Simulated scan of single mutants.
Amino acid sequence: MDIQKVEEAFNLIIENTQTLEQELHTHFYDALIEQNVAYVEGKSSNEMVEKNNEKLHSLNLSQQEWQKAFQFVLIKGGQFAKLQANHQFTPDSIAYIINFIIDTLKPQKDISIVELGSGTGNMASTLLSNSDKNISYTGIEVDDLLIDLAASIADVIKLKVEFMQQDAVKPLLIEPSDVVISDLPIGFYPDDEEANNFHVATDKDEHTYAHHLLMEQALNYLKDDGIAIFLAPVDLLTSGQADELKGWMKDSAHLSALIALPQNLFKNSPKAIFVFDKKITNEPTFVYNLSSLTETEIVQQFMAEFTKNVL
């Protein structure tokens, strides 16, 4: 990866996005979508934007370099126009670990991946631009801004993806997948009638947790030999409504791995990666405290232990 080219691309994208933001009297993310469209189409009504996009084309960035440049753009955008907590993108470092888990547990060349709550698409772009597999990817996202942003970034990077705008808790028109992933949005789901269709629905005087519903939904659209990977609070199994969640797990899902992530990655509660499959078994859960995602020796030790204990 040529970091100098990534930095140059980042500066050109930011300059164009801020120019379009002022010209169109819109916010940063809408302007970024317009910039991506202008880049793909190779034309713009703004002469400076068009010239900068010509420079971007001449850089001839790889998919990995594009992905890194867009992550820096999204970080910068967060300084101008903050997204709500559940709309924040999944960091590369975590996506790389998820990619390793997929490669380890699903070694076949051709796989299908569904992401529930695909957000800005950073997870998708990280996985697809750093994998040698033939991945059929479908992202499900209810927010129209996020899905337009993710699709426009994928167009620039030239990723083969499909995005569907839909509430992921409701019935989906998709086939069962080899892998379902989700950086789970945390909170209550407001539609009690829809929630009552799920085993994890609570009978308490409150709404059901949306993240519990999405976990059950993920298993509904998982092949019998598939895996589901969630990024969720580390206290998922002891927090509110945990009894309902564990009652569903007892009959429907097996927690094969729980990987606690470094606390310094998160502003609020620490998170972990949860790996589920549909095999009802008494096999123990592989539990690991991954203390760093930047120290090579620590990451390699985790990979060795995961491969040894989960396969």
Rank of each mutant, 00 (worst) to 15 (best):
M1C: 02
Q4L: 05
K5C: 10
K5F: 11
V6K: 00
N11S: 09
T17I: 14
Q18E: 15
E21Y: 07
H25R: 09
E41S: 09
G42E: 06
E47D: 14
V49M: 01
E50D: 14
K51E: 12
E54W: 03
S58I: 00
S62C: 08
Q67D: 06
Q67W: 10
G77D: 06
K82F: 12
A85C: 01
Q88A: 05
F89D: 05
P91N: 04
D92E: 14
I98F: 11
N99R: 09
N99M: 04
F100L: 02
F100E: 11
T104M: 15
T104R: 11
Q108W: 05
K109N: 01
I111M: 01
G117C: 12
S118F: 11
G119Q: 06
A124C: 15
A124S: 03
N130L: 03
S131P: 03
S136Q: 04
T138I: 13
I140Y: 03
E141I: 14
D143W: 12
D144N: 01
D144A: 05
D144P: 00
I147A: 12
I147E: 11
L149Q: 02
A150Q: 03
A150M: 08
D155I: 14
V156T: 13
M164N: 06
M164P: 00
D167A: 13
V169I: 15
K170I: 10
L172I: 07
E175I: 08
P176L: 14
S177K: 04
S177C: 14
D178H: 15
V179G: 08
I181H: 15
Y189D: 06
D191T: 05
D192H: 02
D192M: 10
D192P: 03
A195Q: 11
N196W: 09
H199S: 14
V200N: 09
T202N: 12
T202W: 11
D203I: 13
H207L: 11
T208P: 06
A210M: 10
E216I: 00
Q217H: 04
K223M: 10
D224C: 07
D225G: 00
G226C: 02
I227V: 09
A232V: 13
D235Q: 12
T238S: 06
E244H: 06
L245W: 08
K246W: 03
G247N: 09
G247P: 07
W248L: 15
A253S: 14
H254C: 13
L255S: 07
A257Y: 09
N264R: 04
L265V: 01
F266K: 05
N268V: 05
S269V: 13
P270V: 05
P270M: 03
A272W: 10
A272D: 05
A272T: 12
V275M: 00
V275N: 03
T281Y: 03
N282Q: 04
P284L: 06
L290N: 06
S292L: 07
T296E: 15
F302L: 06
F302K: 02
M303F: 07
A304E: 14
F306E: 06
